[in-house]
């Protein structure tokens, strides 16, 4: 694939693949595959856009393309896991966490199997493809399942680290939620140092007036927002809550006590998602603080190119800063 120049709006498939540098599941599994014969992977005709194919190229005998049959794929992954495999499944989040929800619940979560689901192009990343291709419910859905761990990494480096941990030391089902992979990274890749651990929030910036708790691609936007807020005199803590379940409650409570105001930001409906999960922790703690959830407010997204949609829904840095400013000064 030649390096091409492209417009930020492009959706041409192969340019898109080239741009999706943060979709690191396939390359990570390819790296781990030799020492971990238990890894198998599968997709449903989206192995290239999800970049799981990077594993399939290296280990064709352990890679299965199920065609457009997600329910069968997820359930077969459970069957594979029952034979001792760690089964990685990846397709667009709308066809995984939403379409195959019952299969995930009954065949994966209930038997508590080592199936790792990676929903890509989540939230509104599919832009003008429309609501059928958006996933603004998958956190709520998977979070409601007992045994399920729910992780929304900030970038490709984080995804790679968390997948590696999940292969080496973690048991049980995980739902990973990632975007289309062409976003700006938050973490600098460092072979010497693990920067993301399952269940441990990362405080990326300290602040005393407000804490923004974000997940997924909104972490980077929250950092941009913190810069703007700093200029407005609002000292903002930014927390990457990549693991939504089980949540790092200690970090949440500490932030609430120390900054007195918490704003959650997610590319997801505010019902049942990250914001709801944080709210549950706060309300049950008895700690009093200002609190607001930011995301989609019980609505389906407009049609548009992703770049403009994030602006429209105030899910870019400037938008989050404006929401935060209004919230803190209310």
């Amino acid at each position: 694939m030649n390096t091409t120049t492209f417009h930020k709006d492009t959706w041409e498939l192969y340019k898109s693949l080239e741009m999706s540098k943060q979709l690191t599941a396939g390359e990570t599994l390819a790296k781990l595959g030799k020492n971990h014969p238990e890894i198998v992977a599968m997709s449903s005709d989206l192995s290239k856009p999800t970049r799981l194919w990077d594993f399939g190229k290296e280990f064709p005998e352990r890679f299965f393309n199920f065609g457009l049959a997600e329910k069968n794929m997820v359930t077969a992954a459970a069957g594979l896991a029952s034979t001792g495999k760690t089964a990685f499944v990846s397709t667009y989040a709308s066809f995984l966490g939403v379409l195959a929800a019952e299969n995930i619940r009954t065949a994966v979560a209930y038997p508590n199997l080592n199936v790792r689901l990676i929903g890509t192009h989540t939230g509104i990343a599919m832009g003008f493809y429309g609501t059928s291709h958006h996933a603004t419910e998958d956190i709520s859905i998977t979070r409601a399942m007992a045994n399920m761990t729910v992780i929304s990494p900030a970038d490709g480096a984080a995804l790679a680290e968390l997948i590696e941990e999940s292969v080496k030391t973690y048991d049980g089902p995980i739902y990973f939620r990632v975007s289309r992979g062409r976003e700006e990274p938050v973490y600098k890749r460092d072979a010497e140092k693990v920067q993301n651990k399952i269940g441990k929030a990362n405080t990326l910036r300290n602040g005393s007036d407000l804490t923004i708790i974000a997940c997924g691609i909104e972490v980077n936007e929250a950092l941009k927002a913190a810069d703007e807020l700093q200029e407005q005199g609002i000292s903002t803590r930014v927390m990457d809550m990549h693991t939504i379940k089980p949540m790092d409650t200690k970090a949440v409570l500490q932030a609430a006590e120390e900054t007195g105001a918490v704003l959650t930001v997610e590319e997801h409906n505010v019902q049942g998602g990250l914001g709801s999960a944080v709210a549950e922790v706060l309300l049950e703690s008895g700690i009093s603080c200002k609190f607001k959830r930011h995301g989609f407010y019980d609505e389906y997204s407009l049609i548009g190119k992703p770049y403009y949609l994030y602006q429209h829904y105030k899910l870019d840095g400037a938008g989050i800063a404006s929401v935060a400013n209004e919230f803190i000064n209310k």
Binding site: E61, K71, T75, G79, L80, T83, T106, A107, P111
Partner: peptide, 22 residues
Amino acid sequence: FSSGSIGHGLSVGVGMSLGARV
């Protein structure tokens, strides 16, 4: 394998059979 949701079984079997092959 746990069951009860009608229609899952054969998919589970596909996975088990692939596992045997691997």
